[in-house]
């Protein structure tokens, strides 16, 4: 069964490859806008580029999770989720993982290229990559949660980010602090462990939370 479900998720993403490429293109476009706006100041850039990468990652996850359940809602698939006699938590969990695999992982895979473009040192870019690897699944699941929360409302394009961004703050604080520490030559493993703890806290409870939220937002 689980094999079947994974196959279905993969089929869905492979049929809509623009869902995979568009976030990637968006990521590179936003990243490349910053030098145009800020001018060729190398010193300034070395300081802000980790932050720029993180902000861009946030925008991308917001964009790709914003309308996560919209089609399912319009097609009535959500109603089937709610009246299903088998637990849908597994399906929801796989959907979160699939969404991360196809929208965030490509960005992380292209990070070496970004490091090269902006001349980030190896150690810095390694930490950025690790924080992204642990942070983006959290961001994606919170974003999906936000999209489930606003499902019943019409015209909610801006509302979801407004609800979701405050919940991004803990992840941001610890990733930024890890990146800061490494550029100052301090140990950074504490921040990474906290990020990991957040990840392992949020991923298992998210499917249950999502199911409950879907029930609420259909019910209103």
């Amino acid at each position: 069964m689980i094999k079947n479900l994974i196959k279905k998720e993969l089929i869905l993403y492979f049929r809509n490859l623009n869902n995979v490429f568009l976030p990637l293109i968006f990521f590179f476009l936003i990243i490349s806008i910053f030098p145009l706006v800020l001018g060729p100041d190398k010193l300034l850039f070395d300081n802000i580029i980790p932050g720029v990468i993180w902000i861009t990652a946030i925008l991308t996850t917001l964009l790709s999770s914003n309308n996560f359940f919209r089609d399912d809602y319009n097609n009535g698939v959500i109603e089937m989720y709610l009246t299903s006699s088998t637990g849908v938590e597994l399906i929801l969990f796989l959907r979160i993982i699939a969404c991360w695999l196809f929208t965030c992982l490509p960005i992380i895979l292209f990070m070496p290229l970004v490091s090269l473009l902006f001349d980030i040192s190896f150690e810095d870019s390694f930490v950025i990559l690790i924080t992204l690897l642990m942070g983006t699944p959290i961001l994606i699941s919170i974003g999906i949660f936000g999209s489930a929360l606003t499902l019943g409302l019409a015209r909610n394009n801006i509302l979801t980010p407004i609800i979701v961004i405050p919940f991004y703050i803990p992840v941001l604080i610890f990733s930024a602090s890890a990146i800061d520490s490494v550029s100052l030559g301090l140990p950074y493993d504490m921040q990474l462990f906290i990020l990991m703890a957040l990840l392992f806290l949020i991923l298992p409870i998210m499917p249950y939370l999502l199911k409950y939220t879907l029930e609420l937002s259909i019910n209103n």
């Binding site: 069964m1 079947n4 479900l5 279905k8 089929i11 869905l12 049929r15 809509n16 089609d71 399912d72 319009n74 097609n75 009535g76 698939v77 109603e79 089937m80 989720y81 009246t83 299903s84 006699s85 088998t86 849908v88 399906i91």
Partner: peptide
């Protein structure tokens, strides 16, 4: 209970066969 609403509960990006196969995930019978 099996509920079929006037929204068809079908996934647009799957074929007819795949949609019916997918059903097993929601219905243990």
């Amino acid at each position: 209970i099996i509920y079929i609403g006037h929204k068809n509960s079908l996934n647009d990006d799957l074929t007819v066969t795949e949609n019916l196969e997918y059903l097993g995930a929601f219905d243990q019978t």
